Amino acid sequence: MKIRVELDRTMAADELVIKAATLSADVAHIVQMVEQDTAQRRIAIPTEDRTMLKNFDEIIAISVTGETLTYYTNEENLVAHGTLKMILQKLDANLFVQVSKQNVINLDGLLSLEAGFSGSMVAVMRRGIKIDVSRRYLPELKRHLGL
């Protein structure tokens, strides 16, 4: 594999072009690494009295009840207003997975999966946080985990 960098001071914005004969596993991996590295890696959480900026790796899970979002972080739980749909658009889809209508988990915070009721599962997260995983969302979680 050849790598070449060309500098062009006339360009208004950076552009990365990858040329390949085929979309091999190596090329796909490089594209994924670049996309992840350039993606936004933190989120603004507007609480009642302030707006907290949290890196994605600090967020363990997010739950919604009505229009109240609870962010479970490494140190604390933060409460904000909004919808899960709105938050999912801001998160890294390779790192965060929706596991029920009410819950999203950070795969890096997942410690284990336990059997729940009626074919559902319970995700055991850092800080001992337990998040329900519904049967409907379980196949997608398993896909992300390579199961």
Rank of each mutant, 00 (worst) to 15 (best):
K54P: 00
H29W: 07
N106V: 08
R136C: 06
A20D: 09
M11K: 15
L7E: 14
G119C: 09
A44T: 02
M11W: 04
T10C: 04
E76G: 05
A20Q: 03
K54A: 15
H81R: 15
A80N: 05
R135Y: 06
R50H: 08
I131C: 07
I131G: 05
L91F: 06
L16M: 11
M125P: 04
A61E: 02
I62V: 13
V122T: 13
I45G: 00
L84F: 07
I105E: 07
L107G: 08
L7R: 14
I30P: 00
D108I: 01
L141R: 03
G109H: 11
R126F: 02
I105C: 08
D14I: 04
K85P: 00
S63F: 03
H81W: 09
L53M: 12
V17I: 12
M125I: 06
I105A: 13
Q98L: 07
V31M: 10
G82K: 07
T70L: 06
H81T: 15
L141P: 03
M52I: 10
Q32S: 11
T70F: 02
A25I: 11
G109T: 04
L113S: 06
E76S: 12
F96Y: 10
M52F: 02
N55V: 01
D37K: 12
L7T: 13
R9E: 15
L16Y: 03
A93S: 15
A115T: 12
D57L: 02
D26I: 01
M125T: 06
L88I: 12
Y137D: 07
L91N: 10
K19L: 14
T22V: 07
S120D: 14
E58I: 01
D57F: 01
S120I: 05
V124I: 13
E6Q: 12
Q98K: 14
V17N: 11
D108N: 14
Y71M: 06
E6S: 13
I60P: 00
L111S: 09
F96Q: 09
D26A: 13
Q98Y: 04
S120H: 05
I87S: 01
A13R: 15
R136I: 03
I87Y: 02
P139K: 10
I131L: 05
A13M: 11
V31R: 11
F117W: 11
E35A: 11
E35N: 14
T38P: 00
V122P: 01
R42W: 13
N106E: 06
M121Q: 10
H81Q: 14
A20V: 07
Q36C: 10
L53H: 11
P139D: 10
D108P: 00
H29E: 15
E67H: 15
K54M: 13
G119R: 10
A13V: 10
A28Y: 00
E114W: 03
A44K: 07
S24V: 09
Q36D: 15
I60A: 01
R50C: 04
D37Q: 13
I30V: 14
Q40E: 13
Y72D: 12
Q102H: 14
S118T: 11
L110R: 02
H29K: 11
P139N: 08
L141G: 03
M121T: 04
R9K: 15
A61W: 00
L113R: 03
I45N: 01
R126K: 15
S63I: 05
R126P: 01
L7D: 12
A61P: 01
G116D: 13
M125G: 05
F117K: 10
L91E: 09
L91Y: 08
P139H: 10
E114G: 01
I30K: 03
L88F: 06
M86L: 09
T70S: 10
G128A: 13
D108W: 05
A93M: 11
